[in-house]
């Protein structure tokens, strides 16, 4: 699946990284706890979260996450979006809740990676 596929499945808006949508993603992780993300996330991942602070961008950076999706209509501010752009990170936003957004991507073939 590409980031663009994920965007289309969720009907998400692109807030940063418009030119980076053709990257492949292999797994996803949904959490508001960054330490859990750091423990379990894989390469070429999407991170779905409702948490909106600079540590989300830094966590994504440490893990080489490809795309951040803010769920529940959360709106990152300009500082966060600028941080994301500097790091070549795609940022999407969807009104779907966490459970629904994860379910839609899972149904489309994206998984959470091996346990």
């Amino acid at each position: 699946m590409t980031v663009r596929d994920a965007k289309n499945i969720l009907g998400a808006r692109v807030l940063a990284g418009e030119d980076l949508l053709d990257q492949e993603v292999r797994s996803a992780c949904g959490s508001d706890m960054m330490s859990d993300v750091l423990a379990f996330s894989k390469d070429h991942s999407i991170l779905l979260t409702g948490l909106c602070n600079p540590q989300v961008i830094r966590t994504a950076e440490m893990l080489d996450i490809v795309c951040l999706i803010f769920v529940r209509g959360k709106k990152p501010d300009d500082t966060l979006l600028e941080m994301a752009r500097e790091r070549g990170l795609v940022v999407l936003a969807t009104g779907h809740r966490m459970f629904s957004a994860c379910g839609m991507l899972y149904e489309a073939g994206l998984n959470g990676g091996a346990v």
Partner: peptide, 23 residues
């Protein structure tokens, strides 16, 4: 894993899940 003494305000910032040292 899971043991944390971080205050609630830190948890609301996305940390304090008790995974720091194990990670």
């Amino acid at each position: 894993a899971g043991y944390s003494t971080a205050p609630d305000e830190i948890r609301s910032l996305g940390f304090g899940a008790g995974m720091g040292l194990p990670n």
